[in-house]
Structure formats: structure tokens, C-alpha cells
Design a protein around this nucleic acid. Structure first.
Ligand SMILES: [Zn+2]
Ligand SMILES: [Zn+2]
Ligand SMILES: [Zn+2]
Ligand SMILES: [Zn+2]
Lengths: 176, 176
DNA sequence: TGTATGGTGTTATATCATAACATGTCAAGC
DNA sequence: GCTTGACATGTTATGATATAACACCATACA
């Protein structure tokens, strides 16, 4: 189902920036998700499944209302809670992440793996990359431990420039 | 101007969790801020100054509309942009931070020092502590560098339990 | 004395999120 | 079979957060 020719992520010239292997895109993730959830006694219902699909196909961060629009157009409910509930469910189960700086959601690119995700957000093109956040999580955990704080969930986001936009905006001004 | 007897932060039994030295509270920070800004050709105007004061006095994270209410009651403007502009100004100049998980703002506890702040947010009592985020910033920078991303600003927040609430909620159930 | 800049204020609107309640579905227990 | 409880989905209505666009007034300074 993943079509690189229409995938904004894949269309990016900076494959290194958004390094996702397509053996995991859409369908595969979906199957994986279903298995995982079943093991935990959870259900990937139609709305939830379709919501995840929409995020996977979009291959970028989407606002809840954008997702809702898609869902509504396909015969699901038309009201905000429909989208928010599905998105929150996916987030709780590690299948999607919330990007707080964008008030948006994105499909997890590494479902199943234990990860405290870190996101790199380009302020120009809004592309979001999920970076391995293990080292960051460790550092954060240590800082917390020092003051006796128990970490349960983390939000780590960096705003800046993706390689492509850095070229366009950077010191290379006189190229064109 | 800082009165520990009415300061929610100071009233906390977990001084270690919110370790702030009062030589820096309110007035001192304010003076420092003014100096710093002047050096950068920026002005700590009445609204901005009062906004910072409000955050410092509150000694906790406040929503923009809460701040606005205070400002309005004191003769400043009554409309959202008044608060948002002041808060954004303070944030841009390192005098306040935005806590995205809470949609709130808090005065910086370490103004002047270069720091990529990390916040520890108690999900029970909502107390926010600003932890030194240098190590975290480094880890994040490295992860970003690997994919050619240029970091400009970071958001690092941990949700969990402060020491006090961990005691109350934790495995120590049968104490009372 | 124009005129550019920046700060403050306004009105109006956009955007994001949740509370509260009604209905449907399905499986466990009687 | 029916009842009941758990959970999912849908609704209406409202709340909370944030910004666009414009008017007015200062100060700075050519
Ligand atoms: Zn792809
Ligand atoms: Zn970009
Ligand atoms: Zn204090
Ligand atoms: Zn607490």
C-alpha cells in the first residue's frame, strides 16, 4: 500500500534524514500492530485501524482534525472525539506519537521496539523524523533520579532545519 | 518580594525536588533580566516586567489566560494577545519557558545561564521542576547530527511523579 | 517635521481538545 | 434465551488555547 511516488517522506531528497525501510511501511506495520494488540487483549477496531492507516499513508504529522476529515469522508463519525479517541488509543499502545510542538500525531516508525522517541522537526517544511531516543532517555532519567523524580513518559522534540532546508536557507545563499 | 510562606514551590515538602535558591527569586531575577535585556538592546516594558513578576511570584506553571487575568486586573490589556506577546517575548529571551504538555509558561529558574532546559512534571500535583538539561541536549544534538539535522530549539519534558506524590501513591500504600 | 520602528491595545476568528450523554455490540453468567 | 457489564462508537455542546489583522501612540532620528 505504500507508494513511494506519492509519499511526501519518500519524495524528500534527504533519504538519510527520514531513513525508513519500506519493508515496514503501512501494511507491515498494520499487521504487526494487530498482532501486538491482540497479545495485550486490545482490539484494532475499524476506526483505529483506519486511523493508523491514514497516518502511515500520510507519512507525516497530521492534526487530529485532518485525520477526522479523512475518517468522516469514509463513513466514520464526524465529531472530534472520534479522531481523538483513536489517536489516543494508538499513542497509548505505542503505535503513534504526539508531536506537541505541532499539535499533531504521527505513526510510529519503530513499533514494537521499546523506545522513548525523540523527534526532529524542520521548521521550514514541517517534516518530522523519529530519531532513536535511547541515549536521551537515559540522560533524562539520570537527571530525574538526582532529584528523586520518577519518569513515566517523555516528550523530546528538537526544532530546526532538515538537511534539505538547511541547504536552501543556509550560507549557500548565492548558489542559484 | 519572594515570600516563602506563600510560595507554593517553597511550601512543597520536597525541597530537593524544587531546589531554588531564594537569593535569585523574584526581585533578583527581575534585576538580572533588565540588565541582560538592555545589553541586547531589548526593553523590559511594564507589561513584560509585570508578566515576569507574575510568573516568578506564582512560582509554578501558569496558562496564558491565567496570566492575562492578572494583567487585566492591574490595568493592562484584557485580550489574549497581550499575554501571549509578553510571554513569547520572555521565552525568546530565556526568561521564561513554555511547558508544552501543560500549555503553560513558567519563569526560568536559571536565567543567564546557557541551558537547554528539561522539565520534570508531576502528573499528580502538577509541580514543574527545571532540571539541568545539558547532558540531554548533547545526546539530542548527537542524534540529530547523525542525520544532518540542525537543532535550533529543544523541548524536553518528563511526565511522572515527584518524590512527594510518589510516596503518597507508591508501594507504601499501607502506611497510614 | 515627516517617517520608520516597535510596543500596546482592540475585534474577531481560528484551532485544538474534552465533557456528557445516547446507542450499539458482544460475551459472560444466570 | 435473557440480563448485565464492559467497551466501542456516535452525538451535541462547550471549553481552552492561540493567532490574524488592524488602530493608536510613543520614541528615535533623518
Ligand atoms: Zn515510506
Ligand atoms: Zn525541511
Ligand atoms: Zn522560592
Ligand atoms: Zn507531585
Amino acid at each position: 500500500m505504500h507508494d513511494p511516488s506519492t509519499c511526501p517522506g519518500c519524495a524528500q531528497p534527504d533519504l538519510a534524514f527520514a531513513p525508513h525501510d519500506h519493508t515496514r511501511c503501512a501494511d507491515d506495520v498494520l499487521a504487526l500492530a494487530e498482532t501486538q494488540l491482540a497479545q495485550g487483549g486490545q482490539r484494532l477496531t475499524p476506526v483505529r485501524r483506519r486511523t493508523l492507516q491514514i497516518l502511515l499513508e500520510a507519512h507525516r504529522a497530521m492534526g487530529a482534525y485532518d485525520v477526522l476529515e479523512r475518517l468522516a469522508a469514509e463513513g466514520f463519525g464526524h465529531q472530534p472525539p472520534v479522531a481523538y479517541r483513536a489517536l489516543e488509543f494508538l499513542e497509548e499502545h505505542g503505535l503513534a506519537h504526539r508531536i506537541r510542538r505541532l499539535n499533531a500525531f504521527t505513526a510510529c516508525m519503530h513499533p514494537g521496539e521499546i523506545h522513548a522517541p525523540a523527534f526532529l522537526i524542520c521548521r521550514v517544511c514541517n517534516v518530522v523524523a523519529e530519531a532513536p531516543g535511547v541515549a536521551i532517555g537515559l540522560a533524562l532519567g539520570q537527571a530525574a533520579k538526582k532529584v528523586g523524580f520518577t519518569v513515566e513518559r517523555t516528550t523530546v522534540e528538537a526544532l530546526g532545519l532538515c538537511p534539505a532546508c538547511a541547504l536552501a536557507e543556509g550560507p549557500v545563499r548565492g548558489v542559484a
